[in-house]
Design a binder for these strands. Structure first.
Length: 155
DNA sequence: GCCAACGTTGGC
DNA sequence: GCCAACGTTGGC
């Protein structure tokens, strides 16, 4: 089974590639969308490659690479009434939301901006380029992954 | 800060 | 199980 590739969004003012570099690894907390959760639950494996995308940023774009280092388990922030991600419908005996852990791999020498992604031939099918798709966890192909990494290192 | 496009919720 | 209302996402 070949490893898979993903794009995961984070708002850099909440958690950035620099934070991940400092921490080494992180819990990917706060995913509250069923489709995104299902990707994590059903398809994400240790070793999968992750494009770390900065959303709600100026400019938005892929900032670096991470790797899945723990497969899906209960997102405990859902149980915490003080958390922004609290969801009373998720119970410890029946967790509704899951997270994975990711580890830092590299920060790009230059951010691959959304505009650059749009202008790059061969990756037109990336979900992040499709209008109206807001999924915070998206599959990408190996070709898309490799091309974005090449752009990021080129900087 | 705006707002279009979505996803979820809840009344019926 | 429909669908209007509401909340969220995320680029701009």
């Amino acid at each position: 089974m070949p490893r898979r590739y993903w794009l995961m969004k984070s708002e850099p003012h909440v958690y950035s590639i620099d934070d991940l570099e400092r921490d080494g690894r992180a819990e990917w907390e706060g995913v509250r969308n069923y489709q995104a959760r299902n990707f994590m639950r059903d398809d994400m494996k240790v070793g999968d490659g992750v494009l770390f995308y900065h959303s709600n940023a100026k400019p938005p774009g892929v900032a670096g690479v991470a790797r899945v280092c723990r497969e899906a388990y209960a997102d405990h922030t859902a149980f915490d009434p003080d958390s922004d991600y609290h969801d009373p419908k998720s119970r410890r005996d029946e967790p509704r939301w899951l997270m994975v852990d990711v580890e830092f791999v590299e920060k790009f020498s230059s951010l691959v901006a959304l505009d650059t992604l749009r202008a790059t031939p061969g990756i037109e099918d990336m979900m992040v380029l499709r209008r109206g798709i807001r999924l915070s966890v998206q599959p990408v192909t190996r070709k898309q992954f490799d091309r974005v990494v090449a752009l990021g290192r080129r900087g």
